[in-house]
Write a protein that binds this DNA or RNA. Structure first.
Lengths: 227, 227
DNA sequence: CGCACGGTGCGGCCGCGGCCGAAGCGTGAC
DNA sequence: GTCACGCTTCGGCCGCGGCCGCACCGTGCG
């Protein structure tokens, strides 16, 4: 099954169409083949071929549901690899006004595989430390545990998962750390759940900060003033 | 300078010749263009072209010395990305006896970008925790600080560097964690310095455990009996 | 000095792989 | 049952890029 070495997995990511698909899937949710064809800008047949290769390479997995086939990132290791890769691949230059707007919204709030990133991500990271919900060693304090429980986050469940619990991750737009790991994934999901953020589109990593979220961040002591 | 997006950096890694070059460079030291041509199995001109692309993509950097040009991994971010990629790209199947021997020695002791990995890597990781030189939070204890100083490791200097200090990293041959991060890099260098390990070849990641190292690991309580 | 050597640039060959259109298959709607 | 739709498979076209040989440049040696 696994004849994949460094080169072949790199080649899988190295195709522009597949890279766009993977980038969309880094939003964390499963997307249908047709949606992925659209974001990649190719026909359905071509997309199907790409997805077949990604599947064979173990980068994505598929779940059939009705007459749709939903693809998603295969596991945390894949997400972390793509995340690490994007750290050495800063954003491409802007060409159109539309792209400029999209880039700005991505820089403000987005998902990074399965957790929050962008300006809001680093602000939240800083706030969690400033409020001492997290220690410098990135462990949850008793106060943090209680506060996160109020958000609907099960800290102990996150701790039990087989991936790093909480760690800093250098944000490539802010060049400062945001929070990554199992806890970060749960916190991000909880905040979307509580309506702080809404996804701009099902197949995009871009998030929109709601008024609720804006108030919540202010309560945490975050300074949302531009730059 | 940076027009590199996810796809182009993936494509850089995706070529078999370039992947072999990068894998060799993951040994942590700078290698001359000719050596890299040899490990890649291509002519000098082809290798030069590859290295030019890797250079333009920011994956390697070059230092001219005499009539040689030495290439090395550009920075920690690149090393971490390659490391993360290799986690989703388990080793390719064995075809020859020579490869089998090489695979076995790699599984026993090797460098993973700039720190120790393989069976010896995870044994050392376990020993550092068992001896309580490292806490569960992967911070160095006072006892550990003294012991590491005796090895010639400057713990405080490692703490100051702009990369993660010490963290677990899942070993893909042992499927158990070894130690990664700035501290791990210094510890690995110190142990090679003290003659516990020697590099099997300048352009390989494979290490050989010396008698000195074998005794040292035993003193730490490591069980070196095979499997 | 001249030669050997390491490394790079260029021209040309060639094969891998991305792309599409058409056809086939299974699922769900009516 | 019949049709529509989502997705995959197959065949064929074509362009990108890896490969080499050769020429060129700079360095170091005798």
């Amino acid at each position: 099954m696994h004849d994949t070495d460094l080169a072949s997995v790199g080649a899988l990511i190295g195709d522009p169409s597949r890279a766009r698909m993977l980038d969309s899937l880094m939003g964390g949710r499963a997307l249908a083949a047709g949606e992925l064809a659209r974001v990649a800008g190719v026909g359905p047949s071509t997309a199907s071929e790409h997805l077949g290769r990604l599947l064979a390479g173990g980068l994505v997995e598929v779940v059939a549901q009705g007459r749709h086939r939903y693809y998603r990132i295969a596991g945390p290791a894949v997400g972390e690899a793509l995340e690490a890769l994007s750290h050495v691949a800063p954003p491409q230059p802007v060409r159109t006004l539309r792209q400029a707007g999209h880039a700005r919204s991505l820089a403000f709030a987005r998902t990074c595989y399965d957790h929050l990133a962008g300006r809001c991500g680093v602000l939240l990271h800083d706030a969690l430390l400033a409020q001492r919900w997290l220690s410098e060693a990135y462990d949850v304090t008793p106060a943090g545990s209680a506060a996160l429980a109020a958000w609907g986050v099960d800290v102990e469940a996150a701790r039990g998962r087989r991936r790093s619990f909480a760690r800093p991750c250098l944000d490539w737009t802010e060049r400062r750390p945001h929070l990554a790991g199992a806890l970060a994934a749960d916190v991000g999901a909880a905040l979307i759940d509580r309506g702080w953020f809404v996804r701009r589109a099902a197949d995009s990593r871009s998030l929109r900060l709601t008024e609720t979220g804006r108030a919540g961040l202010r309560d945490l002591g975050c300074d949302l003033s531009p730059a």
